[in-house]
Design a protein around this nucleic acid. Sequence first.
DNA 1: GTGCAGAAATTGGTTGGACCATTGAACCAC
DNA 2: GTGGTTCAATGGTCCAACCAATTTCTGCAC
Lengths: 243, 243
Amino acid sequence: MTDSLPPIQTTARDDAVLKALAGFVRQESLGPGEKLPTERILAERLKVSRNTVREALTRWEGLGLVERRQGSGTYLKAAVSPDMLHMPLTLAGGNDFAGLMCTLEIRRALEAEAAALCAIRAGKAELAEIERKLDIMEEAFRTRDGMSSEEDWEFHQAIFRASGNPLFEQIIAAMYELFHRFWEHPLGVRDFGHASFPYHRTIFDCIAAHDPEGARREALKLIATVEDDLKRGAANLKLSDRK
Amino acid sequence: MTDSLPPIQTTARDDAVLKALAGFVRQESLGPGEKLPTERILAERLKVSRNTVREALTRWEGLGLVERRQGSGTYLKAAVSPDMLHMPLTLAGGNDFAGLMCTLEIRRALEAEAAALCAIRAGKAELAEIERKLDIMEEAFRTRDGMSSEEDWEFHQAIFRASGNPLFEQIIAAMYELFHRFWEHPLGVRDFGHASFPYHRTIFDCIAAHDPEGARREALKLIATVEDDLKRGAANLKLSDRK
DNA sequence: GTGCAGAAATTGGTTGGACCATTGAACCAC
DNA sequence: GTGGTTCAATGGTCCAACCAATTTCTGCAC
C-alpha cells in the first residue's frame, strides 16, 4: 500500500496566512508598535481574499498580538515569533468575588516564587531598577495617600522581570487586566492597599540581601493583606446589597 | 488636566454579535457539544452581514469556545456565559534547555500552591478521582517500567482540577504544551521520571489527610527530582555533543 | 422492509467587488 | 502657528456568488 501519499492541506487558509505573516514579521524584525502591511496588500501578495486576511488578523487581534485602527492601519502590539504558543485563559464570571480570588491565588503562587528566584539571581542593575520603582511607588503613596496602583504594579513587574524567567511576567501580564479591575475599583474599601504597603520595602530588603526564603515569606504576607482587603470589600458589598 | 476621558465607543459590530450570541446561549441553556444556529441564520436574525458573524465566531474559535465543522455546523466547546473574562496568554517558546527550566519553575510555583489548596478543598469525590489516576499511573509505571508520562500527567491534572481554581489547570496546560515540544528528544536519561515516582503517592497522602503544608512540601520534592533529572539530561547532551 | 449508492440539500470556507467611516497628511486661508 | 478643507489610504461592513465537506434524503436493488 502506498500509504503516506497526500494528506494534502486543502484547508487551513488563514493559518497559512498567519504563518506567512509571522515569518514576514521575523524577517523584517518588526517589533511592538510597528505597522504591518495593509490588508489589501497582504491579500494581493499572499494571493488570498482580503476576507481571509481579515479572519487571520481577527484571530491575532483576539490574542492581543495586534491592534487595528480604522483609517490608520494594523499595528503589532507584542513580540511575535513563528513558534510561539497561544493559550487563552478563560474565567467564567470574571466580575465577581470568586473570580478575583482565583487570580489572587495564581498571583500568590507566582509572586512568592518570583521573589525567591529574584533574591537568588538579581544582579546589581536589576536591584537598582527594583529599588527605583520602589522609591517611585513610596513617593506616590505619600503624595496621593494610597492610590498608587500604577506605580505599585511597576514595582512587582520589575521583580518578575528580574526573576530571570520571562514566563512569570508573561503569565502575570495576561492577568493584568483583572488585577487592575479591582485595584481601580476598591470595592468600597477606602484604604485599599494601605495594609500591603510596608511589605514592598521588606520584600525588596530580602531580595537585596539575597535571602530567597525571606523574600518568599514577605511576598506571601503582602498577598495575604490584599486577600484580607478583598474579603473586607466583599463583605461590604454584601452588606450594601441588602441595604 | 482632565485626564480620565475614556475613548468613546462608536462601533462594535462583532462585539455586539458575540454579546447577543452569549445571551442566546444562556437563554437556550446550551452546553458544550450542542450546536449553534447557522451562520446564515445568525446573519439574518441579527441583521448583520454573514461576514460580520464570521469574524465574531472566529474570535470565539480562537478562544477555544467554539468549534466549526465544515458541512456540519458550529458547536459549543466550552461553557459560555455573557460575563466571562478572557486573558490571552502567549508564551514565547524557547525550545532549548533554558526554556524547559523556565516551565519547570512555573510548575514548581503552581504545583506547590495547587497541592496545598487541594489539600484544603478537595472533597470525597475529588479525592477518589485523584486516587484513581494515581492507581492507573502506578500500574502503568510497574508494567511499562517508567514510561508513564501520559498517566503521570493525568494525575497532576486531577490535582489541579480539584484545587477549586480553574486557572491552575489552564496555565499548567500551557506549560505542558511547551514541555512536550521539547519532549521529542528523550535527553538520554533512560530512567527519567523514576526518582519522582514515590512522591506522587506521598502528595496524595497529604492531600487525603488535608495537610496543606505537607502536600506543598512533597510537591516541591517531586519537582526537585524532575529538575535533577533534567540537569543530568542536559549534562549528557553536552557530553554527547562533543563526541 | 432493508441496505446501500447516488443525488440533493445543508453548512462552513473562500472569493471578488463594492461602499462606508475613520484617520492622517497635505494644503490653504487667516 | 491656528484652524478648516480636501483627499487619499485603511480598516469595517455588506452582498452575492461559488467551493468543499458533511449530512440528509431518495430511490433502486434485493
